[in-house]
Design a protein around this nucleic acid. Structure first.
Lengths: 159, 159
DNA sequence: TATTGTTATACTCTATAACTATA
DNA sequence: TATAGTTATAGAGTATAACAATA
């Protein structure tokens, strides 16, 4: 555990409380962004879970098992998630041509259109969150956030 | 959120892809941090909702209404959240001395100890996420994240 | 009348365990 | 036997609407 290794940069708070501040700021940022995404999803009648599901289906046609792995959920949780989306004609199940036990999940035209609309709105709203930063700051934040995420085992679906 | 959805502007000098990247990177970072916090909470038998509740109660003794406002929930949702925590002796309800209708919610000694332990673990784990960044990068990320959050109506509980 | 909080109800989301049907 | 998926069940979390008690 790295412990207070002297920040060395402007705005130094003398005692270098960075160790604590990074945690607090990332947690707050996380809740802010997560909450914003949840709000946007809700405006389209979706939940965060559905939003992530759509994010995965956007460029894949996975089986339930792979879907569960992508989202970090149990396969039994997937059944309900896909059921509810299917009931609304947003996704469909098709039999796998290679495995008689498996089904492939994909977006319907309606689901794809909804996914597009939600993604557009989400993009706008998240961008708005950073609207008061300068271009340079936004750029830096983006780079640093990507760098942090890159150093890990890919979380869930993007969106 | 896998890119695409860029019918409008294409490249545009330095700030080109940033507009999209900021959205993608923040969303991914958000899910990573949120997921990590959820994992830590689960290891202590708590949910994210309880984690945030504890975060608020850490330095306050609010009524149900104020609590709901802090967490962005309906008052009826608070009843259940507090009920479940109270059942485990983590928080308590006391009658308000100023208002016969209201109750004040506070952490019990046991709840406070649990809150302390979870916060410590969460701090460690979130810090680990940024472990592979340089000190300067961590510091910058912290500053930028704080700056972004500061420009908004305080999200949920810090913690 | 307005406000504080709870209850009743209904859904989504999630997991564990047991089950079916392929492989 | 092992794997893909579903079903049964249970519980958390959330909201809306109706209610009680107090202001």
């Amino acid at each position: 555990m790295p412990h207070d290794t002297t920040p060395t940069d402007e705005n130094s708070e003398a005692s270098g409380p960075v160790d604590l501040e990074i945690v607090d700021s990332l947690a707050q940022l996380s809740f802010l962004v997560h909450g914003t995404l949840g709000q946007v999803a809700a405006e389209h009648g979706l939940s965060i879970a559905q939003l992530r599901l759509f994010g995965v289906l956007r460029d894949r046609e996975p089986g339930m098992r792979e879907l569960a792995r992508h989202l970090g959920l149990d396969k039994s949780s997937m059944t309900g998630l896909v059921d509810r989306a299917e009931r609304r004609d947003l996704v469909r199940r098709t039999a796998s041509p290679h495995d008689g036990r498996a089904v492939l999940v994909s977006l319907t035209a309606q689901g794809r259109e909804l996914a597009r609309a939600v993604a557009a709105d989400a993009g706008q709203r998240v961008q708005d969150l950073a609207a008061h930063l300068t271009d340079a700051q936004r750029s830096q934040l983006s780079v640093l956030a990507s760098a942090l995420v890159a150093g890990h085992g890919a979380a869930g679906a993007g969106q």
